[in-house]
Simulated assay, not measured.
Amino acid sequence: MTWLLLAEAGVPEGGLFDLDATLPLMAVQVVLLTFLLNSLFFRPVGKVVEDREGYISTSRADAKQKLAQVQRLEADLTDQLRGARQAAQAAIVEAEQEVDRLYREALATAETEANRTREQARREIEAEREGAQAKLMAQVDQLSSQIIQRLLAA
């Protein structure tokens, strides 16, 4: 009520402030405008912003989780690759050892066969030499007998 009395009271014009009914009316308009803006604009925008922040935080958490999973998978694949490389190197070493063993066996077999063939050839040559020597000795004996017979006959 005192505001109304002040609004109705005559105020000298030309002062720094004019106190009339417009001040409370402006205050009511500001409060009403604030209420309307809050209910019509700020709450929906705030809800959209909160939803967006929730989506972003959820997406960020999912991304972190997926990144951790990718890192775990990468580590697992790296370990598997390392194991496969080691297995391949072991297989190569084993294959080289097997080839070396087979080479040595083949070489030993070839040497044995060569020695056996050489020994057999030596025996055959020795037998032929002895046969030839025996033949020559028989021919020498025969020739000696013929020479002796011719000398005795002459």
Score class of each variant (00 low, 15 high):
residue 47 K to P: 10
residue 38 N to Y: 10
residue 78 T to E: 15
residue 70 V to T: 11
residue 131 G to C: 05
residue 74 E to L: 12
residue 55 Y to I: 04
residue 154 A to L: 04
residue 138 A to F: 01
residue 79 D to S: 07
residue 145 S to R: 06
residue 59 S to T: 03
residue 152 L to P: 00
residue 125 I to W: 13
residue 36 L to G: 07
residue 148 I to G: 08
residue 29 Q to K: 07
residue 103 Y to T: 14
residue 70 V to F: 11
residue 3 W to C: 14
residue 138 A to S: 12
residue 23 L to A: 14
residue 144 S to E: 06
residue 102 L to N: 08
residue 75 A to E: 15
residue 83 G to V: 05
residue 143 L to M: 03
residue 102 L to W: 00
residue 90 A to P: 02
residue 117 T to Y: 06
residue 48 V to P: 04
residue 121 A to E: 12
residue 29 Q to G: 11
residue 89 Q to E: 11
residue 19 L to M: 08
residue 114 A to D: 04
residue 90 A to W: 00
residue 44 P to V: 01
residue 35 F to H: 13
residue 43 R to A: 12
residue 120 Q to I: 08
residue 139 Q to A: 11
residue 110 A to R: 07
residue 19 L to I: 07
residue 113 E to G: 08
residue 65 Q to P: 03
residue 70 V to Y: 13
residue 119 E to G: 08
residue 96 E to S: 05
residue 29 Q to D: 11
residue 105 E to L: 10
residue 22 T to P: 00
residue 69 Q to G: 10
residue 19 L to Q: 01
residue 115 N to W: 07
residue 123 R to V: 08
residue 134 A to C: 01
residue 84 A to K: 07
residue 92 I to K: 14
residue 109 T to L: 07
residue 144 S to Q: 03
residue 51 D to G: 08
residue 7 A to Q: 05
residue 50 E to M: 02
residue 149 Q to D: 05
residue 3 W to M: 11
residue 42 F to M: 09
residue 88 A to S: 11
residue 47 K to Q: 13
residue 15 G to D: 10
residue 96 E to M: 04
residue 145 S to D: 14
residue 128 E to W: 02
residue 40 L to A: 15
residue 121 A to M: 09
residue 104 R to M: 04
residue 132 A to C: 08
residue 115 N to S: 13
residue 128 E to G: 01
residue 105 E to P: 03
residue 5 L to T: 08
residue 90 A to Q: 12
residue 143 L to W: 00
residue 109 T to Q: 14
residue 97 Q to N: 11
residue 44 P to A: 03
residue 121 A to Q: 12
residue 18 D to T: 10
residue 111 E to C: 11
residue 75 A to D: 13
residue 27 A to Y: 00
residue 17 F to Q: 01
residue 75 A to F: 07
residue 81 L to D: 14
residue 145 S to A: 15
residue 148 I to Y: 02
residue 99 V to C: 15
residue 49 V to Y: 07
residue 147 I to T: 02
residue 136 L to M: 07
residue 27 A to F: 03
residue 63 A to V: 05
residue 147 I to E: 03
residue 53 E to W: 02
residue 43 R to W: 12
residue 120 Q to C: 06
residue 2 T to L: 13
residue 31 V to A: 10
residue 29 Q to V: 09
residue 68 A to N: 09
residue 153 A to N: 05
residue 17 F to T: 01
residue 45 V to W: 10
residue 60 R to K: 15
residue 149 Q to S: 06
residue 127 A to C: 09
residue 35 F to N: 10
residue 120 Q to E: 15
residue 119 E to N: 09
residue 131 G to P: 00
residue 70 V to N: 12
residue 124 E to K: 03
residue 139 Q to N: 06
residue 102 L to F: 02
residue 130 E to I: 09
residue 151 L to Y: 06
residue 38 N to K: 06
residue 137 M to N: 15
residue 99 V to F: 11
residue 36 L to I: 13
